[in-house]
Design a binder for these strands. Structure first.
Length: 460
RNA sequence: GGCCGGGUGGCAGAGUGGCUAUGCAGAGGACUGCAAAUCCUUGUACGUCGGUUCGAUUCCGGCCUCGGCCUCCA
């Protein structure tokens, strides 16, 4: 079965056929670095990480580009509010983003270009658009002329008439058409600016992705991803600029992850349901956050709930318990992705289905009797985990995770109590053994007596 | 107003024109010093009204309802 992907452009699932199977290109819109990432930002990071891992399985050479937007009016405003320089703000938030992405067990992209390092390329593209009559200068701005592109609006599925009718924002007086958008705008002395044929200024939002994607992946490339909210206007405009400047097709497959809500409501600061990835990492392991995100198909709206996170932790407990049971056995077939997991992911990245198979593999592992069988099941489970970015940490590390600022028993204290209980059991002093069990239970520690040993873990 | 995507068992969440995932929670059983874990068994699910069909949760249409987008929020 070929890899099937839902293409926003055609509104249907299509068989993926790369332009060049020896160099598959994927561009995903990365963060604007003005603040810590919130959980909505985390969704595309995780979803496209799974696609990246899958593509790497299927093709020998995948180039994953995810940009950092480090020039933006929100950045300017935030730096002023924080009383820090723009450079300090963007460096700090970029680093925080990298830490969060790593905590969610996502692979770094192959190339992570920053917008400010590609201003020259953007200027060149804007000049081309001007020369071809797709852009015009007005009051120090350069604007893209939407009417100059007949099939503008195809990606987001709206006609130019609709755009004009629906425009609810005051139209800047220098625009020839209400739908026209900024390619370049003037910068006063106190804002970041670069010299250009149109004076000192800074780029509009959309042009950076057009410039950087073509620089690293070519003017036509395979996959372009991002959140659904970017379909319009960002991706529509990127597409328009790129096609008009280069005269060739742009991205061939457009993938968009659905929106994120919190406890059934739109996430917003005013509702008090706004979480950063950081906030959550203090309360739950990154792997649990990752699994939670993957339990809903990427294309569906995702409802983040405390209960959902709890269930994911329980699910990971189950999977890691299965692995703990075969800790001493060397896995077999570690590199062979189980066929049903592969099939699920090849069907438009059906992670919920893949996770269901993960559970079935765990059940098989739990039921395995012979060592050979256990080794095979363990290998299959781990291989399935690899492509999902799950089950890769040390089993005991998973069970010992503690929330930030926890004041409970530390590992050594738990070990000491467990040992005292083992001694009590050997002496058949079950009253003392049960007292210790209760003491540990009160501290959130679950004990599991096995043949000749006692394992422990921290409950949720 | 225009456009888009949803409504599945107690909960989350896939999927399918007939054989009805998976996990959590619940019930019963096996195992266990007690537990936990594990395994086995179990639960008349598909918003509503019509249509197509031998048969629809799955296809088509109306309706209800939820959410989103409509110029810079992933």
């Amino acid at each position: 079965m070929p890899l099937m992907l839902y293409n926003t452009m055609s509104r249907r699932k299509e068989a993926f056929q790369p332009l060049d199977p020896d160099r598959v290109g994927m561009y995903v819109c990365g963060p604007t670095v003005y603040d810590c990432a919130h959980i909505g930002n985390a969704r595309p990071v995780i979803v496209f990480d799974v696609l990246y891992r899958l593509l790497k399985r299927l093709y020998p050479n995948v180039v994953y580009v995810r940009n950092i937007t480090d020039v933006d009016d929100k950045i300017n405003a935030r730096a002023r509010d924080n009383d820090e320089t723009i450079g300090e703000l963007t460096a700090r938030t970029t680093q925080a983003f990298h830490q969060d992405a790593a905590a969610l067990n996502t692979l770094p992209p192959d190339i992570e270009p920053r917008a400010t390092a590609h201003i020259g390329h953007m200027v060149t593209m804007i000049q081309t658009l001007l020369a071809k009559g797709h852009a015009y200068e007005a009051e120090g701005h350069v604007l893209f002329s939407v009417p100059s592109m007949p099939d503008y609006g195809r990606l987001s599925g709206r006609s130019q008439d609709e755009l004009i009718a629906g425009a609810r924002v005051e139209v800047a007086p220098y625009k020839k058409d209400p739908a026209d958008f900024v390619l370049w705008k003037p910068s006063p002395g106190d804002l970041p600016g670069w010299d250009s044929p149109w004076g000192r200024g800074r780029p509009g939002w959309h042009i950076e992705c057009s410039a950087m994607s073509s620089e690293y992946l070519g003017v036509t490339f395979d996959i372009h991803g991002g959140g659904q909210d970017l379909v319009f206007p960002h991706h529509e405009n990127e597409l328009a600029q790129s096609v008009c400047a280069h005269g060739q097709p742009f991205a061939r497959y457009w993938l968009h992850n659905g929106y994120l809500m919190v406890e059934g409501e739109k996430m917003s600061k005013s509702l008090g349901n706004f979480f950063t990835v950081r906030d959550l990492l203090d309360q739950a392991p990154g792997e649990a956050i990752r699994l939670t995100m993957l339990t809903t198909h990427y294309h569906q709206p995702f409802d983040w709930t405390a209960e959902g996170l709890r269930q994911s932790r329980t699910a990971l407990d189950r999977l890691y318990l299965a692995l703990r049971g075969v800790a001493g056995i060397r896995p077999e077939g570690r590199d062979e992705l189980p066929v049903d997991v592969l099939a699920a992911l090849k069907d438009d990245i059906n992670t919920p289905m893949a996770i269901a198979h993960l559970h079935e593999l765990a059940t098989q592992l739990n039921k395995a009797v012979t060592t050979a069988e256990k080794a095979r099941c363990k290998g299959a489970l781990l291989a399935a985990g690899d492509v999902l970015g799950l089950l890769q940490q040390d089993v005991e590390a998973w069970f010992r995770w503690t929330p930030t600022g926890s004041s409970g028993l530390d590992d050594a204290a738990v070990e000491a109590l467990v040992q005292r209980r083992i001694d009590a059991r050997k002496a058949k002093d079950f009253a003392e053994a049960d007292r210790i069990r209760q003491e540990l239970a009160d501290a959130g520690i679950v004990l599991e007596d096995g043949a000749g040993s006692t394992a422990w873990r921290r409950g949720c």
